[in-house]
């Protein structure tokens, strides 16, 4: 199966690879997936006092589509408020990267990672965790 140009681009030149200090109050961390499933994503956001995401970083263990999905997610997150970020849907990622059906789970994982990072931030800062849709897998 051939990968789309966009997947190859994100895979070869991943955006925003790295680590934020998860101990900081302003940082939310999402760690989703499992090594035995062949996919683990860690997505982190740094949020300012206006609830705008000023920085986003990721590291992913997984196939090219998983890496590309999380790389794309970090690009989309920057500059969004955490409420806006919640509207990112996995199907947007599928469309942007032209993921084939067997790779849709990669986009689902990226969406889970976004929500999980936002929730981590919310709980840290005294907000209620938002209800997550239960596993799509």
């Amino acid at each position: 199966m051939a990968y789309s140009d966009k997947v190859i681009d994100h895979y070869s030149n991943p955006r925003n690879v790295g680590t934020l200090d998860k101990a900081k109050q302003s940082v939310g961390t999402g760690l989703v997936g499992a090594p035995e499933c062949g996919d683990v994503m860690r997505l982190q956001i740094e949020v300012d006092e206006n609830q705008v995401i000023t920085d986003a970083k990721f590291k992913t263990f997984g196939c090219g589509s998983a890496i590309a999905s999380s790389s794309l997610a970090t690009e989309w997150l920057k500059g969004k408020t955490i409420d806006d970020a919640l509207t990112i849907d996995n199907m947007d990622i599928v469309e942007e990267l032209a993921l084939p059906p067997v790779k849709i789970h990669c986009s689902v994982l990226a969406e889970d990672a976004i929500k999980s990072a936002i929730n981590d931030y919310r709980v840290k800062n005294g907000m209620e965790a938002i209800e997550l849709e239960k596993s799509h897998h």
Partner: peptide, 11 residues
């Protein structure tokens, strides 16, 4: 260890 095979093959 710590890298996924399919991702690795792509590289």
């Amino acid at each position: 260890k710590y890298v996924e095979g399919e991702g690795l093959m792509m590289a």
